[in-house]
Design a binder for these strands. Structure first.
Lengths: 248, 248
DNA sequence: ATAAGTAGTGTATTATTTACACTTGAAACA
DNA sequence: TGTTTCAAGTGTAAATAATACACTACTTAT
């Protein structure tokens, strides 16, 4: 009995001085990570949802997530989960918030950390795994009700992404390494749900000098092909270290 | 033995499939909160440090923090800690990051959430408590080495504060409810470590319309007394809900 | 050749930011 | 009762940045 996770019984309240709470009760938390994985496709910002393969909420839609292993950090756990789902080792990943409502998990006391991740859909082919019966890319404005408190975790992540994408080079993670300015503009428009003037968008982005002009061109388009660019991470580092920040 | 917190023994690695890890090992995390409490005094931004009253790191300087109780959320725990230290119930408080390095705590596996808090020094009188032998306001640029990974937690919080204070009404929490524009300017200059032009600062702040002109004046100053203002939270809410955001 | 369609550029207008000098008013002192 | 001192508070010209929008350029398709 003593080994079981903390009971969720509402009668089991600890309205007593801390020294009357058995010491080991302070060390019975479960820790999990829930990932909000963003991708961009067909001019739409999408998020990766799974159909849960295990209780609780088996069969329901949720964010991919799992308990943190005893020897893992949260970041390691998040990478493991994404690797299981997409096969890719390297992901851009950032924390959002911690969710610690006492009753947020129906079975045990589990505190979860939200993270978001931003990937190029074309490079990844998500597939079902031990804990996910199905995996789906869902446009962010069509996300249905999710298991646990994942509605909230998703909303918060989207809001934080929208804030961050304006000043950090997050957007480039969503695109192939070679892209065209119109794609970049479409991406920002999809993420932020706004429209930009083409000429002004170009001027702003190009004035930053962190895009490398590859002197290559689009192929197979039925009109004048556009120049290909890539994000120059070194140049960007150089710029940020002297106070520069992307402004979109 | 099974009831003890997770061992920090580096030999106890779990490089095995999850189903070979005993189930209860997933529920032996300790969860804590560490608060970075900011205050403003004498034109300086300061942070509240404690001298630890208990092992580990007894006697060393650290951020105020404690284990989360089994029936608490992280936010509740953070408020409890600050109440213990300052006697005040209501605090402005925000999460910063989660710190989950496996070896960050020398005794047990404890994951901590950093929070920051921003208070009016004049209204609070911090005092030693069960877990704090001493309490000190230290200017942010004179913070010495701290216990655990608190150096890092502090640095991150300061960076996040500096980012947030430019667009959220965080600064007002540091001042008495009635203040003078010069005080507000001094505060922003101390937090951000920059200088503003007086005329332009006023124009910018006043153009937001979220300051209420109290038609009252400073007293006891040996020069022309300045107008007193207060932050109008209702007006601010109204403005933000229609897309407005503070810009400093 | 020419039409269609997107790539990419130039520029006038408007809005915002910056720098800095100025005026105002209360208290202190002669 | 001036006059000085000190910071409060204002006005404005110049520089910079944001916006709107029309234009040219180039490649494919017919």
């Amino acid at each position: 009995m003593d080994d079981k996770p903390l009971s969720k019984d509402p009668n089991q309240q600890f309205s007593v001085p801390y020294y009357e709470i058995p010491y080991e009760k302070f060390f019975q938390f479960g820790m999990s990570v829930d990932s909000v994985v963003f991708g961009y496709h067909d001019g739409q910002l999408k998020v990766l949802l799974i159909k849960r393969g295990a209780a609780p909420f088996k069969g329901e839609l949720a964010l991919p997530g799992d308990l943190v292993y005893p020897n893992e950090t949260i970041e390691v756990a998040a990478h493991r989960i994404l690797k299981d789902l997409t096969g890719i080792d390297e992901h851009f990943i950032r924390q959002t918030k911690v969710y610690s409502q006492v009753d947020r998990h129906p079975v045990a006391r589990v505190i979860t950390t939200g993270v978001y991740s931003v990937i190029d859909i074309a490079k990844h082919d998500p597939h079902a795994s031990a804990w996910a019966e199905g995996v789906y890319w869902v446009p962010v404005d069509e996300v249905p009700h999710l298991a646990f408190d994942h509605d909230c975790i998703f909303r918060d992540a989207l809001e934080i992404l929208r804030d961050r994408v304006r000043k950090e080079p997050v957007g480039f993670e969503l695109l192939p390494s070679k892209f065209v300015l119109a794609e970049l503009q479409g991406l920002y428009e999809a993420v932020l749900n706004v429209k930009f003037d083409k000429a002004n968008f170009r001027k702003r982005i190009l004035s930053g000098k962190f895009l490398r002009d590859l002197n290559e061109f689009q192929e197979g388009v039925p009109h004048r092909p556009a120049r290909l660019y890539s994000f120059d991470a070194n140049k960007y580092e150089e710029l940020t270290s002297s106070g520069f920040s992307i402004q979109v």
